[in-house]
């Protein structure tokens, strides 16, 4: 059994290692010009320089912190706004028929248009940059948060609710001490999807033009023809996306809210 898993895990490494080797060889022999694809080594140097201004390689050397803070701040604000609206509305529409029938049709109507489709309108409404970015992040991440919270809340085992009632919990306490914790596995899945989308729409929003932010660096570097910086920014966005996901998951694990719904 364990051997089997090991084999599978090794299998997972084959493709990335191969790709990396091809990349390394291709750039080493100058088969691909560096202005299209820099070598792994150049990339690492650029990344380090971006972080701590070690060599002054690019106009962005030492600016990682500033741009990261700007980007992370936008994700936190936009995602936070989506969660602050999406979670309560989702829980309500999962439990209360009237809330569901008044919210669901509208939400699903708005959802038909993919998030990207809102970009031009957002630019007209909010101008380029900051507000547009926050709007896009919040809009895109709202849907999975709302839908999954509602789904979680509506599928709480009725037996758990009965147990809470006979133990003396009021309707409000049932909501806070039974429905919400029992809905957590599904809700957290929605939050994670929303967070992933937040990073995606962050880049989209920042590309429209902000002064600081990893997306801005990417757009800027494109104009300067600096592929290293584009790739380095992509890598940091990926890294932050992954870290934020782990933090989100970790904090819910800590609160013991992912124990899985009660099996009857």
């Amino acid at each position: 059994m364990y051997k089997h898993i090991d084999k599978l895990e090794i299998a997972g490494f084959i493709l990335p290692v191969t790709l990396f080797t091809v990349w390394y060889v291709a750039t080493m022999e100058d088969a691909v010009p560096a202005y299209l694809l820099p070598s792994p080594w150049d990339l690492i140097r650029t990344a380090i320089d971006f972080a701590i201004a070690s060599e002054g390689l690019t106009p962005y050397s030492g600016e990682l912190l500033v741009h990261s803070i700007a980007s992370i701040g936008r994700v936190v604000t936009g995602f936070g706004l989506a969660a602050a609206i999406g979670l309560p509305l989702g829980f309500l529409s999962g439990r209360i028929a009237l809330a569901k029938s008044s919210l669901d049709p509208t939400v699903h109507l708005i959802r038909i248009v993919p998030g990207i489709g809102w970009l031009p309108l957002a630019m007209v409404w909010f101008g380029v940059g900051e507000s547009t970015t926050l709007f896009l992040i919040s809009l895109a991440s709202f849907f999975p948060i709302y839908v999954n919270a509602a789904q979680g809340a509506s599928s709480v085992s009725p037996m758990l609710v009965r147990a809470g009632r006979m133990l003396g919990a009021s309707e409000l306490r049932i909501f806070t001490t039974v429905i919400i914790p029992a809905a957590m596995p599904s809700t957290v899945a929605g939050l994670r999807l929303g967070l992933g989308l937040s990073w995606a729409y962050l880049v989209l929003g920042e590309l429209t033009g902000v002064t600081h932010g990893l997306g801005a660096v990417m757009m800027d570097a494109r104009m300067l023809g600096n592929v290293e910086m584009i790739l380095v920014s992509m890598i940091f966005i990926g890294l932050f996306g992954r870290i934020s996901d782990l933090l989100l998951l970790g904090s819910f694990r800590r609160l013991n809210l992912l124990k899985g719904s009660y099996e009857e």
């Binding site: 085992s157 037996m159 758990l160 009965r162 147990a163 006979m166 133990l167 003396g168 039974v178 914790p181 029992a182 957590m184 013991n256 809210l257 124990k259 899985g260 719904s261 009660y262 009857e264």
Partner: peptide, 15 residues
């Protein structure tokens, strides 16, 4: 809670 119930399955709160 004056008429507390024990169900066929335990129905404890898993969290």
């Amino acid at each position: 809670p004056e008429r507390a119930v024990v169900f066929q399955s335990p129905v404890l709160f898993p969290w």
